[in-house]
Simulated assay, not measured.
Amino acid sequence: MLVSLLRRLIQATFVLVAMTVIVFLGVNVIGNPVDILISPQADQAERTRLIAEFGLDQPVWIQYFEFVKGALQGDLGTSYVFNEPALKIILQHLPATLELAVAATLMSVAIGIPLGLYAGLRPKSLPTRIIMAGSILGFSLPTFWVGMLLILCFAVYLGWFPSSGRGDTVTVFGIPWSFLTLDGLQHMLLPAFNLALFKTSLILRLTRAGVQEVMPQDYIRLARAKGLSNRRIVAVHVLKNVLIPVVTVVGLEFGSIIAFSVVTEKIFAWPGMGKLIIDSINVLDRPVMVAYLMIIVVLFILINLVVDVLYTILDPRIRLNAGRGR
């Protein structure tokens, strides 16, 4: 277990180094931020001074090594627009994105797994056909269209939920959280549901496929022969085996929610990292763009490590195979 985890950490280090090169070079070929940040009436001397101040007069490889040197010290650069550390700006918006991602993930798991179990255990029933048809809609409907439809129905016509913003927050350990207030929960529900719709359909169909694969297995027949109740068979034998691929998908999809919640945050004016990165791209705020992408890379690496650990907990065969490999 320890050797496997150490091997994963070494692999994660190489991935992180490779991504710093890709991210930094990729961002630096996008336009010239000076053209946006400085007035068109400014003379050449002012342009030269600003370029030197941002370090844009240096070769790209020198800029990269300066970036790596600063990153090792926790400095990912200073925002051109806010004139504050880019990492600080990202971390200020991270809690809003995290709580939205957690809410969407919990919602998709709470809905997707029970419906998937039902659809797998009763594949020919009428409710199962309705559930599977609904999952197709969840896959097919565009996120931006569903978001606007939710706002139109539940915020404009019915007036049940607010259409934008984060609502009231409660500060805990210096971090504002909106899920701790009723107003914050009301603001969170629509964007969280919008993010959860596709994930729910994915988890539902994956759970259903897992149930249909597990039910004909010999150990299920043996459990029935022992006289175990259907509830115990499903809870102990079926669900545990079905959860192994589901955990992987939930982990990766949680990372994708954090990374790609841009559309939802923009539609609902949710003040998270997604909205911040769109605003930063519009003004070519390179340090914020690089900091955002590096935070996303680190989050995906950490999520993969957590998923690997959960694998070994859910499936002892993984530990046995690792031991034989050594």
Rank of each mutant, 00 (worst) to 15 (best):
V306L: 12
G184P: 12
L180H: 05
N230H: 08
L16D: 00
V211C: 11
D218N: 13
L50S: 15
L16A: 14
R166K: 14
A71K: 10
V263M: 09
D308A: 10
G112I: 08
L9P: 03
E99Q: 15
H187D: 11
D285N: 11
R8N: 14
L239W: 05
A45S: 09
L185V: 12
S135P: 12
A96F: 05
V3M: 03
Y219Q: 04
D43A: 14
K226C: 14
P245A: 11
I277T: 13
Q73Y: 01
I220R: 10
V102R: 01
V236M: 01
F67G: 05
L228N: 07
F161C: 07
S163H: 04
V236Y: 04
T171L: 12
L293Q: 08
T264G: 15
A119W: 00
A235Y: 05
L9N: 00
Q217D: 10
L190I: 10
I38R: 06
L56V: 14
S125K: 08
G120F: 04
I295A: 11
R166G: 08
A133H: 01
P162K: 02
I62Y: 00
G165Q: 02
D279T: 15
G184E: 00
I90G: 04
V238Q: 01
R232G: 05
I36Y: 09
F300Y: 13
V263I: 15
G112C: 07
I38Q: 08
I89P: 04
P216N: 07
S201H: 09
F260K: 00
D43G: 15
V27G: 06
L320E: 06
R286T: 03
S135I: 14
G116E: 01
P85T: 00
V288K: 00
P95S: 04
V27R: 03
F139R: 10
I233H: 05
A110E: 07
L149P: 07
V309N: 05
T264H: 05
S164E: 09
N83F: 10
G112A: 09
F144T: 03
I244N: 14
P191F: 03
H187S: 15
V250R: 04
N304L: 04
I51S: 06
R208N: 07
T248P: 05
F254P: 02
V109N: 13
Q44M: 03
G26N: 05
I10V: 14
A291S: 12
Q73C: 03
D35Q: 13
Q212S: 10
V170H: 03
Q186M: 15
T78Q: 06
V102C: 06
L276V: 08
R324L: 14
D57A: 09
L302M: 13
F144Y: 08
F268N: 03
R319A: 13
D57G: 15
F14G: 13
P142I: 01
N230M: 12
L202Y: 01
T13W: 08
A322V: 12
A18F: 14
F67N: 07
L150V: 10
A209H: 05
L72N: 04
R221V: 10
I318F: 09
A133E: 02
I220D: 01
V249T: 10
I267K: 00
P287T: 10
V81Q: 03
P316A: 01
I295R: 02
V283P: 06
P33D: 03
V211A: 07
L185C: 11
Q41I: 12
G70D: 01
Q63F: 00
P142Q: 02
